[in-house]
Amino acid sequence: MTVSPVSPARLTDPELHAGGDPHALWRWMREHEPVHWHAPDDLPGFWSLTRYEDVSTVYRDPRAFSSAHGVLLRPTAQGADPGGGLTLALTDPPRHQQLRRLVARWFSERSARQWEEAVRRAVRAVLARAIERGESDAVHDISARLTLHLIAGLMGVPEGDREDLFRWTNEAFEAGTSLVAHHETMLYFLDLMDLRTAEPADDLVSALVHGSVDGEPLTAEEVLLNCENLVGASENARLSIAGGFLAFLEHPDQWQRLRDDRRLLPTAVEEVLRWTSSATHSMRTATAARDLGGRRIEAGDRVVLWVPSANRDEAVFPHADRFDIARRPNRHLALGTGEHVCIGNVMARAQMRVLFTELLDTVRGFEQCGPYVPVRSIAVNGPEHLPIRLLA
């Protein structure tokens, strides 16, 4: 057996993901150690899954692999995730489906069509500002503003408050901390919850405040944590969009290919999602003993799904390390699958389609004009900063 390029223990080191080559390690693990046990240290012990088939199996079986105990690795000293069993991301059936139904219509195809013109106006405004400035950050000046604008609109955040929310979420994301720990953000949503309790509107916060599960209204804590969950998920969207800019900068032939044939737009969006795989890992907890990938998983064991590895699995994606905007089929797992598939997946795709269309209509192209700085994290990946210049 060939020797691993680096120790699998390095998978919990943010420096590997920011400055090393995790894909080389994942490639070795898929071939030689697809289900690998990590002994506990400051993190609890867990199993690493790197093959598409195993990752998909866990995603699709929420009863055997629970989300209620947390979906991200946390240092043991931090204790359990405060959202466990309370939020859309951290609940199991049947409660997960009940929570999902409360907010599902805001993330539907119909809602995406209704919001498309508002998204287009936001994209045009952001691009016009970027062209005027000359040099912009693809992360903060473009992708972050677009994703925040959309989720804030869905939640009913007034336009006059969105700049504050934009600043607060940036502070939390850059610090690598949960929005729960950002007091201004939480206080803001507590005030908005009070307002929507008295004056309901057609928005997500009103749906949560006035919603119920099994005939019982959600507690204030549940509403607040679900607001945090929804806003926090926008980090993945912003990283995917910014990662899309980087992918096309590194593969200019693919941008020209899209410019020459816009019929490739739907497959280009899917390939950007696969290629960027902005959620680096997702975690589940086994509810009963079972075999997986030739190893015995015991009840209570944590199982970590390395999503970028699954999306480069050569058994599923021919020439997996090639960025190909015409790739078909493309059954990537960047947005999850099964009952816990990202509720914002339709909106994410629609927003990316609008952005790419407006870029094709508005500019000749774009160029990098400064060093790319990657995110330092084992939870998400993509550009922290990506200076670009839009060529009008």
Rank of each mutant, 00 (worst) to 15 (best):
S4P: 15
S4C: 11
P5T: 09
P8H: 02
P8R: 05
R10S: 12
T12E: 08
P14S: 11
P14E: 04
E15Y: 06
G19K: 14
G20C: 08
P22L: 05
A24Q: 10
W26Q: 10
R27Y: 01
W28M: 08
W37A: 14
F46Q: 05
F46W: 09
L49R: 02
E53V: 14
E53T: 15
S56G: 06
T57A: 14
T57Q: 07
F65P: 08
H69G: 09
H69M: 06
V71E: 01
R74E: 03
A77P: 01
Q78W: 13
D81H: 14
P82L: 02
P82Q: 03
G84R: 07
A89Y: 02
D92E: 04
P93I: 05
P94D: 04
Q97C: 00
Q97I: 00
Q98R: 11
R105S: 13
R105T: 09
W106S: 15
F107T: 08
S108A: 04
R110E: 15
E117A: 15
E117S: 15
A118N: 13
V119Q: 07
V119D: 01
A122Y: 00
R129D: 15
R133I: 02
E135P: 10
A144H: 13
I151M: 12
E159D: 13
G160Q: 05
R167T: 06
F173Y: 09
T177M: 01
S178V: 02
H182F: 00
H183M: 00
E184S: 06
T185E: 00
M186L: 07
Y188D: 02
L190S: 09
A198E: 15
E199V: 12
D202Q: 14
L204F: 13
G215A: 10
A220C: 03
E222P: 06
L225R: 10
N226D: 08
C227L: 08
C227A: 12
N229H: 12
E235P: 07
N236P: 13
N236D: 13
A237H: 11
A242K: 05
G243D: 07
G243Q: 04
G244I: 04
Q256A: 12
R262M: 05
R262Q: 11
L264A: 05
T267I: 06
T267P: 10
V269L: 08
V269I: 14
V272S: 06
W275G: 01
T276Y: 01
A279P: 00
H281M: 08
S282M: 12
M283R: 14
A286K: 09
T287M: 11
T287K: 09
G294H: 04
R296L: 12
D301W: 00
R302K: 15
R302L: 13
L305T: 07
W306K: 10
E314F: 03
A315E: 13
H319V: 01
F323N: 08
D324W: 02
D324F: 02
R327H: 09
P329L: 10
R331N: 14
A334H: 04
T337L: 00
E339K: 06
G344P: 12
G344V: 07
N345K: 07
V346M: 11
Q351I: 12
L359A: 13
L360E: 14
L360P: 14
D361W: 15
G365W: 12
F366L: 15
F366E: 15
E367K: 13
E367Q: 14
P374Q: 09
V375Y: 03
V375S: 06
R376D: 01
V380K: 03
P383E: 09
H385W: 00
L386M: 09
L390D: 02
